[in-house]
């Protein structure tokens, strides 16, 4: 509609053209608002994966609009001081934080993110690595002011939402070089999914992994009775439970409301991060030479 109006030649008298112009302007205003809304919607589809902790608690009885607003303001305030990039369970991170037992040197820990949980300021993630043949896991609070830097060395997802089974897997699956270089993905590419299948150690395990319906593990070498019991205990009807799904998720209208509040700030931080990234890319070859 808009394009037709603008391309129309104005041969008629002045009053008519002015009318048309007026109509045009009002239309452009509404269309820009709509376009902005569309853009916001598209961004928010991404935001719910990039910033899952900005969404309120899935438990309805813990929610309060004012508390969440204050919490989000605090989260954005912290994000202006530290760059917390987009990462997922399965990504390889390097977290630098100040160490009270070694005040001179901040502590840098490299490892794979095996879990992300909670929302708001209490959001946390677990990083795992093997150091001197010993599995080490550190749980970081995402908004802890002692964290200096969170670097994503390899941005990728795995087949499962939690990788706690790496604790019972062979050590090579959770061993990462602490001097690893960051792998830079070209802009605009979707986050790659690593289809690796992990081989678990023989039992005893920390949990009964055969009951968890995991996709990222190799076929288990267990007696038949284990699978039989797992089959008995599985709840295949849960994915059809609409009420459960409704309680677990936040409706899109609410998400738009929440993200439109912090969108301006988050977008500014994103632009800043991109600038920094470009700088880093340019600096690298000079260092090598």
């Amino acid at each position: 509609m808009l394009s037709i109006f603008s391309k129309r030649p104005c041969i008629k008298c002045f009053s008519e053209t002015s009318k048309i112009l007026l109509r045009c302007s009002s239309q452009t205003a509404t269309s820009t608002i709509e376009r902005n809304k569309d853009q916001l919607k598209r961004q928010i589809v991404e935001y719910r994966h990039v910033y899952p902790e900005f969404l309120p608690d899935p438990k309805i009885e813990y929610r309060n609009l004012i508390r969440e607003k204050l919490e989000r303001a605090d989260m954005v305030a912290r994000r202006t001081q530290v760059d917390i990039p987009e990462f997922y369970v399965g990504s390889i991170l390097a977290v630098t934080s100040s160490d009270r037992h070694n005040p001179e040197k901040p502590h840098r820990f490299v490892g794979i993110c095996i879990k992300r949980e909670y929302c708001g300021l209490r959001a946390s993630f677990i990083v795992r690595n093997m150091i001197d043949h010993q599995g080490i896991e550190i749980m970081y609070n995402m908004y802890d002011p002692t964290i200096h830097k969170v670097e994503v060395l390899r941005l990728e997802k795995r087949l499962d939402d939690e990788l706690l089974y790496l604790r019972d897997a062979l050590p090579e699956y959770s061993t990462f070089d602490s001097n690893m270089d960051a792998e830079i993905l070209p802009e605009g590419t979707p986050v790659p999914i690593n289809p690796i299948k992990v081989k678990l150690k023989p039992r005893p395990w920390l949990e009964r992994w055969e009951r968890k319906n995991l996709k990222g593990i190799e076929e288990l070498d267990l007696p038949e009775r284990f699978f039989k019991r797992a089959k008995e205990l599985e709840k295949p009807w849960e994915k059809y439970d609409l009420m459960k799904e409704y309680m677990r998720t936040i409706p899109e209208e609410e998400q738009i409301e929440i993200f439109s509040e912090v969108q301006a700030e988050l977008h500014k931080l994103e632009v800043q991060r991109k600038k920094m990234k470009r700088k880093r890319v340019i600096v690298k070859p000079s260092k090598l030479a």
Binding site: D74, A77, R78, V82, S98, P103, P145
Partner: peptide, 13 residues
């Protein structure tokens, strides 16, 4: 209290 918009905490020896 540490204010969230303040710079990151560094421990002094």
């Amino acid at each position: 209290i540490h204010i969230f918009s303040d710079p990151t905490i560094i421990f002094n020896e």
